[in-house]
């Protein structure tokens, strides 16, 4: 028994997720080491002030940016994962497939090693991530294999070069202060989220997410054979480039603020497929909403459950690996 290829009521599913996300955001705003009661939140909205300036500072400088970032990063990873799965015609593709994460990791590691300030770490990660994808696409286009296979192989190779480079830099890093910082960054976390970070990623994310949403129907055609899609009027090459560029842009932006968070880009679109079917008309928006919800919940667990914060990458891997194993061993097809 396979899944239904399309389930009715994509709009209804979207509304349910929108409601869940809104509820999760409100709850998350009040949760934390410094609890802010929901009543205080309501007072702030309707009467314009918190009871103490400390609460005001925590809310605007720490809590709100972190929640916004969790939502943005989750949305970006989910949308990028869904997009890559479509354009690479491969249900197991993830946002890391072309080396966006490994490139960002090298960039961030280098910046931390050079003891650059936090904004530059983000910038380095972002630029290295984009540069990596540009290089991968350039090599992939020239590979003598089928174009998609060429791009994926190039991504694998460049990623492994990157991991060699960051390993080497870790070896050079001062084990007392620099090395832990690098390691912590690589495990993915939002605990350094500041209002400025939200502004930093908001631009690239909107530029990338908007076309992915707008052209979502066309992604369906890209999941077919190239000549089939082109015979139906799609400029396959140009459309695939556009989707890859947008997905890469948002992945790079996400990774540059959150560090490496694996699995979210695989798990979220797959669970979403169970609700919406494979049609990107519904799959894309619901993935975006569910991605935000997913990472927000994970981040809440990460910052509230234990005395010291557990990096996000560890939680997503804990959930992701069993899910992936179930995915590849279960009978019938999921996608």
């Amino acid at each position: 028994m396979g899944p239904r290829a399309e389930k009715r009521g994509g709009t209804a599913v979207s509304l349910v997720f929108l409601f869940l996300l809104a509820a999760a955001i409100v709850i998350s705003l009040s949760l934390g080491r410094y609890p802010i009661p929901v009543q205080a939140l309501l007072d702030r909205v309707f009467q314009g002030s918190f009871e103490s300036p400390g609460m005001e500072a925590i809310f605007f400088n720490v809590r709100l940016p972190r929640i916004l970032l969790a939502c943005l990063v989750g949305t970006a990873l989910a949308a990028a994962g869904a997009s890559y799965q479509g354009v690479f015609q491969n249900p197991l593709a993830t946002p890391d497939i072309l080396g966006a994460s490994s490139g960002a990791a090298t960039g961030a590691t280098l910046a931390i090693l050079l003891r650059l300030p936090q904004p530059l770490v983000m910038l380095f990660a972002f630029c290295m991530s984009l540069g990596t994808i540009a290089l991968v696409m350039l090599i992939g286009e020239r590979a003598r294999a089928k174009r998609i296979v060429g791009i994926i192989l190039a991504g694998l190779m460049i990623s492994s070069l990157h991991s060699a480079a960051s390993s080497w830099m870790k070896l050079l890093a001062d084990p007392n202060n620099v090395l832990p910082e690098i390691v912590y960054w690589l495990m993915g976390s939002l605990n350094k989220a500041r209002p400025l970070d939200v502004l930093f990623v908001l631009g690239p994310m909107l530029i990338g997410l908007l076309p992915l949403y707008i052209f979502r129907w066309r992604i369906n055609l890209l999941t077919l054979h190239d000549e089939e899609a082109q015979s139906m009027g799609v400029n396959v090459r140009r459309t695939r480039w556009l989707i890859i560029c947008c997905a890469t842009l948002i992945t790079a932006a996400a990774v540059s603020v959150s560090g490496v968070i694996g699995w979210a880009g695989l798990i979220v679109p797959h669970i979403t497929r169970r609700f919406t079917g494979n049609n990107y008309r519904d799959l894309m928006p619901v993935s975006m909403l569910f991605g935000a919800l997913f990472l927000l919940v994970i981040d809440n667990i990460s910052r509230n459950l234990f005395a010291t914060e557990v990096p996000l990458g560890i939680f997503t891997a804990l959930m992701g690996v069993p899910f992936f194993l179930w995915l590849i061993t279960r009978r019938g097809d999921l996608w």
């Binding site: 369906n220 077919l224 996608w335």
Partner: peptide
Amino acid sequence: SFNYTVMDMVLM
């Protein structure tokens, strides 16, 4: 690569 309904296939 992905399962679609007949309707979605024809809509493409």
